[in-house]
Amino acid sequence: MTAAVIPAAEFAYLAELLRRESSIVLGADKEYLVQARLLPLARKVGAGNVGELLTQVRLRSDRATIQSIVDAMTTNETSWFRDNEPFAALHSTVLPALLAARSAQRHLRVWSAACSSGQETYSLAITLQEFLPTGWTYEILATDISGDMVARAQTGQYSQIEVNRGLPARMLVHYFTRSGAHWEVAPALRRHVQFQRLNLVAPPPPTAPFDVVFLRNVLIYFDIATKKTVLRHVARLMRPDAWLFLGAAESTIGVDDSFRRTPAGRTFAYQLNLAKPPEKG
């Protein structure tokens, strides 16, 4: 099977499908990504190529295949520095602001709220490790609804294929050690991270508030009422000037007006609308 060019009509159909189903905008320059993500699915359903797959789905409107296409196009949680922009924004905008605001405490608390297999969490740890000046400390709470995922992330072990995904080689050799057939996150990072199983829909257990929250690609799976509940819980655990990062297809707009959208680097983050000035200390 070869990567035949996707006809314009089918590409437009896919772009519309993704916009409708996941609010993701598919750029015209992303055909390579569509090929890479959908070719395995095309094979699985017996379509000759990605164009044929899309034609079939467009004509039949088969719900299961539509869902598989959306999942294949949007699921990418095993990448390091996934989507890159939030981490770049952390580096360029958020951490400099927090460095100024927390100069007395010299300590940052970060929440990786849907840590999955841990790549986001350790990517955050690497970013903080490289950015924070000497004398500063940080801690990361990593949570996930899946106990299996929490246990998996906690091991800090990744296969060869997993470390190939978006992790710069310089960081691989600096923050990981080879252990048998896989790679293990260095203790220098692991000692800053605590893992815990947590359902975002349930009222959160009492904990000190966070300076940065990553809650990415979670809200897309919830209905509006559940989105509201989750955002309410998250807001309660944010310091008044904390930063919330959501997935590219997600927003608080129209869900919870206690947040405002703030430009951060080349992307957006969300901060609390405060009736009162930021608390002291």
Partner: peptide, 20 residues
């Protein structure tokens, strides 16, 4: 076990990307 882990990764990458 180590050999199996390596072989599985080769299969996942090239010989059985769909897991079928």
């Amino acid at each position: 076990i180590d050999l199996k882990e390596i072989v599985d990764q080769v299969w996942e990458s090239y010989l059985d990307p769909d897991g079928t």
